[in-house]
Amino acid sequence: MSGILEFDNIVRAYVKAKPVLNGVSFSVAEGEVVGLLGRNGTGKTTLIQITMGLLFPQSGTVRVFGLSPATDPVAIKKRIGYVAEDQVLPGASSIAELVSFHKYLFPRWDDELERRILDRFRLSPKDKIMRLSKGQARAIALLCAVCHRPELLILDEPAAGLDPAARREFLEVAIQFLNREGATILFSSHYMNDVERIGGRAVILDEGKVRLDSSLDSLREDYCVALVPIEAAPNPETLTHITGCLRARSVSRDWHVLFHGNPDDVQKLLAQSVGINGIRCDRMTLEELFVELTGNEQAQVLS
């Protein structure tokens, strides 16, 4: 592995015998934009906090800029911009005081970028943090994260709880930053549109493991879902044994079978295996793929 961020076989549990992360491995190269996806409780925030040195893994290794967050957390945090899911800023301070504090911590502070973000969100340095709306507070958190021009920007559910307009504005600032600096970005989100908008690669976590790690282009092109009537294949194992099958789950009277492959080829494979010609087989949006991959409990998961 080589990259700015490297996770190798990370295991982290909050309750014994129930690991949230159970052998997560992937790496992020310099300049990459990676969207971390997963259902609630799949360990996205845990993984991000491990990167920040705010949690130690119980096994496995993490390297950030080649350093370990367990032994060099301060050096690592100096090079990272971080917006937490539940970011709480000191409410009694003004924006100016908060910015002054960050300038002291980060000598590379970009005053011009700070001014542009403040203008963009119509904020005054004299405003008290406690009087800001949720969207404005997130904007200030983003300002603090990007204005010191970090090499790695980590956004944990950056737009959670924001209205669509505020979300869009927030993302635009992140995209501008990305274009300008070419920084590496790791962000977690439940909004697939957001991931498609700024992400170059998606890592989907499910049941403590990396279920899928691929570029967004590849996700759109290389995966498809086949709708097989349950009567045609009462036993899902006949489907899950087909080459390229990732998962089959029952939805109403069909099996939704997720394949890694081109729809035409998958149709041929299904015709050979199940004996039915013309089975519907479609490419998916990222959201559809996410649902097929991590969807409901009736699904039959291929290990």
Partner: peptide
């Protein structure tokens, strides 16, 4: 430590009676 931890370093045992950690 150099950096504080968000949660306990060791996993908790499950309290079976209350179903909470």
């Amino acid at each position: 430590p150099q950096s504080f931890q968000r949660g306990p370093t060791e996993p908790a045992l499950r309290d079976l009676a209350l179903e909470r950690s």
